[in-house]
């Protein structure tokens, strides 16, 4: 039971996380060796209640890891729509771009997560933002053969 707060967050162990931050509140936004916070671990592993709990305790969803990864991108890449929506209730940059060459929208398209894409577009995600390889979200959907995703993105552009 000497797991780090990051591992506990990933495992959704709210009781243990609560105990840790009660003893040392700075752990709430502590970054591991790659810059990932407990919220990022919870977002990456789809732990909805944990993400909600951490944010209620004051976890900062705007924190970037070493390569500018953020909780929103991790949740979008994993297709965890509930967590995407929870994070979007906070003031975050929906178009944050990281050194891995992507935005939350591009990660959601890559993973073919249509519900995440809808949530991001509703919050103003920039559909023209290209990955550093030059792929726009639509070009990515076409290249990956994601027909439903392609139509969703095309319909969004038509409605702009």
């Amino acid at each position: 039971d000497n797991l780090s707060i990051h591992q506990l967050a990933a495992h959704g162990d709210i009781a243990q996380v609560k105990m840790h931050i009660t003893c040392d509140n700075s752990l709430l936004n502590s970054q591991d060796e790659r810059g990932f916070t407990p919220l990022m671990w919870a977002a990456a592993f789809g732990e909805i209640e944990m993400a909600q709990f951490l944010l209620e305790k004051g976890a900062d969803p705007k924190t970037f890891a070493r390569e500018r990864e953020c909780a929103l991108s991790l949740a979008s890449a994993g297709g965890f729509t509930d967590i995407v929506n929870i994070i979007l209730k906070h003031e975050v940059d929906v178009n944050s771009y990281d050194w891995n060459g992507g935005t939350p929208l591009l990660y959601a398209v890559r993973g073919n997560h249509t519900k995440c894409v809808e949530a991001l577009l509703r919050h103003g995600a920039d559909i023209t933002f290209e990955a550093d390889s030059g792929y726009s979200p639509i070009a990515l959907a076409v290249a990956l053969g994601y027909r439903k995703m392609q139509k969703l993105l095309e319909d969004h552009i038509l409605n702009l």
Partner: peptide, 21 residues
């Protein structure tokens, strides 16, 4: 119960395996 350790989160390379656009 012994919890298994998760590996550190990572983001996928978005255009891995796709032709240069």
């Amino acid at each position: 119960s012994q919890l298994s350790l998760y590996t550190s989160p990572s983001l996928p390379n978005i255009t891995l395996g796709l032709p240069a656009s």
